[in-house]
Design a protein around this nucleic acid. Structure first.
Lengths: 110, 110
DNA sequence: CATTTATTCAACTATAGAGAATAAATGGAT
DNA sequence: ATCCATTTATTCTCTATAGTTGAATAAATG
């Protein structure tokens, strides 16, 4: 598969990272996907996708500070890169180009 | 991977099948994807995806009649099933739910 | 040191991609 | 009519990448 394209789950993870902005780490990314799509997004899958995305330099990560919570390991926060944002737009463009105007799909997405 | 979901390339192939309607077979499906998205879609990949889609019963196929052309093997025509159409809508819904309203993506697709 | 929160790993299945091989049909030459 | 080069299309093989699950590990705290 061309390394320059986003696979579907990677695209979803990247979109969740973009939306969550400052608060994007494993658990909320998984929740965001599950909440918006209704599909399961296991943590293992999310982390695996995040690693691939970082290899492709579509995201970068930094370790978070400790918080006031009970305990627990440090969070790893992710943010999208300019390159990642371009890739998302490209995927969005390619998909909408294929589905726009198809009457079977009730006039394209909102 | 859940057999009930469409992977990205499968989604693209299925969208091309829907758009081409009566004329959906290997070569034009590949052309349609390449033309609309600007990405390469090798015949090998297209046929492999079509086979997976047929296994999942998202498409059905029938062999075509001979035509007035010079020669050549019979075409295998594909058409989407009701189940396939549902799967496309579901993918479309999931993706747009994740990207809609993100200002980085200029207000969502047309 | 048990508990909490989070990430990483390992093993496996599914999807994607490129290119070679094969198949089937036709028209023309002999 | 039979052979065969050509055309059009599909299938096969091999490799790489993506996605899944469940268990293991890590780090922080009271």
């Amino acid at each position: 598969m061309a390394r320059t394209h986003l696979a579907e789950f990677e695209l979803m993870v990247l979109l969740a990272v973009i939306r969550l902005d400052e608060t994007a780490y494993g658990v909320p990314i998984s929740h965001e996907i599950e909440h918006r799509t209704g599909r399961e997004a296991s943590l293992g899958s999310v982390y695996a996708a995040l690693e691939r995305l970082e290899d492709k330099r579509f995201v970068k990560s930094r370790m978070g500070e400790r918080t006031a919570e009970r305990g627990g390991r440090a969070k790893r926060y992710f943010h999208v890169t300019a390159r990642g944002l371009r890739a998302v737009r490209e995927s969005q463009r390619a998909l909408t180009a294929l589905w726009q105007g198809l009457p079977q799909l009730e006039g394209g997405p909102a």
